[in-house]
Design a protein around this nucleic acid. Structure first.
Length: 437
RNA sequence: GUGGGUGUAGCUCAGUUGGUUAGAGCACCAGAUUGUGGUUCUGGGGGUCGGGGGUUCGAGUCCCCUUACCCACCCCA
């Protein structure tokens, strides 16, 4: 490859107009769906004080341990460093507290769209900057809310065209007390068998006990079969919550798959946790993760507040869509039509260029549609070529004859038919024809 | 952080056992007589063969280093 002085930073990519067609489609789908469920958009800053993430995600999480994009502060006292958000929940919870919602309007259902940052080694389906769609609902411990949140995630993928194989896997992490008990039991159970387990598991035993449960090594899977199950240690309130959640899911017509291996990587989860999978995609089938985090708001300085949410990564979603050949060709063509101009103005001679510029301004103001013309001194014929290639519906031709008569030639580039139209009637004529079609 | 693969025009790739001025398709630009597009034809611009070093009479082709990207592991969206 030729020597290029600069390139996009590792793990980042440029989204060109062509790429944004799909991104906007995802965002539009997310916005419409979220709004229909009563979620309002929120946009917290892209970076926060580092300690917010340390506190909320947990010191031992991989994200905090080695994946943070942090920048030192300068000249501002000895403040904490800043970190570009590796996920959305912590910042949204912080915003909830700062906005004083706990006191004035505790029930809030919010969603966000935007980039997240993790300092990881990039590979397929993983970037250092990636977009997420997430929702967070604060102020209710009701399992009905959990179910509605999960349902929203499912509907997002359904709206994009994912088929009936879409699957939601659920589990419960219990509350803090349940988890302490479970952690102790697991430690007792795992310790004597460490010798027989894989090296990764011996590492995990120190770092994050729960992760031993979703190890993929054959011998570890076997050993996990007899491991103490949280479900059996669950306190009454947590058990009732999980049962209520499953019931609400059924009321929504969902059949969640219970999977004790769903153990999310961040510390803040309590009770309900879930992932949306599309098994057809194999190893990369997880498209969405989320759950309840009743302790987080308090953790970041607010009053005890129940909350539940999820995050969907667009990188994985885009990969999955490509795999499934979605959106279908016809819809994709419609989406790409956004890039095409409506009208392309063509000058027959150089003397027609300035009058055409005036006409362009007039049409843009009157119609509010994209109107293009040539800026490269192309010949009349070349301009026609460009008009055709641009995907414009209409070509408007202006030559000396038309100029003398105060008219233009309006050509329909699809039907190849054309007519002469008075310049003052042009906008109305185009608007009329478009409305008819 | 660990391991593997790849790196030739904007894009997708050819380049024989190392041998003269490095090619194709697509894209781009311009023409194919007088004011009309998407097909076709002709012509054109564009590459220090990722970078550095070495072997050789001679390297895109062999060796070493380096860098970027990709893929897998870890972990996750």
């Amino acid at each position: 490859m030729a020597k290029i002085p600069f390139q996009a930073a590792r793990g980042t990519r440029d989204l060109y107009p062509e790429d944004l067609v799909l991104v906007r489609h995802l965002e539009r789908t997310a916005r419409n769906l979220a709004r229909s469920c009563g979620f309002a958009e929120i946009r917290p800053p892209l970076f926060e004080e580092t300690r917010l993430f340390r506190r909320s995600l947990g010191e031992s999480s991989d994200v905090v341990d080695k994946e943070m994009f942090s920048v030192p502060r300068r000249g501002e006292a000895q403040g904490d460093s800043y970190t570009f958000r590796p996920e959305g929940t912590a910042g949204v919870a912080r915003a909830y507290v700062n906005g004083g919602f706990a006191a004035r309007a505790p029930l809030q259902k919010w969603f966000y769209l935007g980039p997240m940052f993790r300092y990881e080694k990039p590979q397929k389906g993983r970037e250092r900057q990636f977009n997420q769609f997430g929702v967070e609902a604060f102020g209710s411990p009701s399992p009905i809310l959990d179910a509605e949140v999960v349902d929203l995630a499912m509907r997002f993928f359904e709206a994009l065209g994912f088929g009936a194989e879409l699957e939601v896997r659920v589990n419960t992490m219990g509350d803090a007390a349940d988890r302490d008990l479970w952690r102790a039991r697991l430690a007792e159970y795992f310790e004597p068998q460490l010798e027989q387990r894989c090296a990764d598991c011996r590492q995990r035993f120190q770092r994050n006990l729960f992760r031993l449960l979703d190890c993929k090594q054959a011998q570890c899977i076997e050993l996990n079969a007899q491991a103490p199950r949280l479900k059996e240690l669950l306190g009454g309130a947590s058990a009732a919550h999980f049962a209520g959640f499953l019931e609400a899911m059924r009321a929504l017509g969902r059949q969640p798959v219970e999977d004790a291996g769903i153990v999310r990587g961040l510390d803040y989860y309590t009770r309900t946790v879930f992932e949306v999978h599309y098994p057809q995609l194999g190893a990369r089938s997880a498209l969405c993760g989320g759950g309840r985090y009743d302790g987080l708001v308090e953790e970041v300085g607010g009053p005890p507040t129940a909350a539940v949410g999820f995050a969907i990564g667009f990188t994985a979603t885009e990969l999955a869509l490509a795999e499934l050949e979605l959106p279908p060709a016809a819809q994709l063509a419609d989406l790409h039509a956004e890039l095409a101009p409506e009208v392309f103005l063509v000058a027959v001679t150089d003397e027609d260029r300035l009058p055409l510029l005036g006409l362009a301004g007039h049409l843009r103001a009157a119609l509010g549609v994209p109107v293009l013309l040539d800026y490269r001194d192309k010949s009349f014929k070349a301009q026609m070529k460009e008009a055709g290639k641009s995907g414009a519906r209409w070509a408007v031709l202006l030559g000396p004859d038309e100029r003398a008569a105060g008219e233009v030639v309006l050509r329909d580039l699809q039907s190849r038919s054309e007519e002469r139209v008075a310049q003052e009637d042009l906008a109305g004529r185009i608007a009329g024809a478009t409305a008819q079609a």
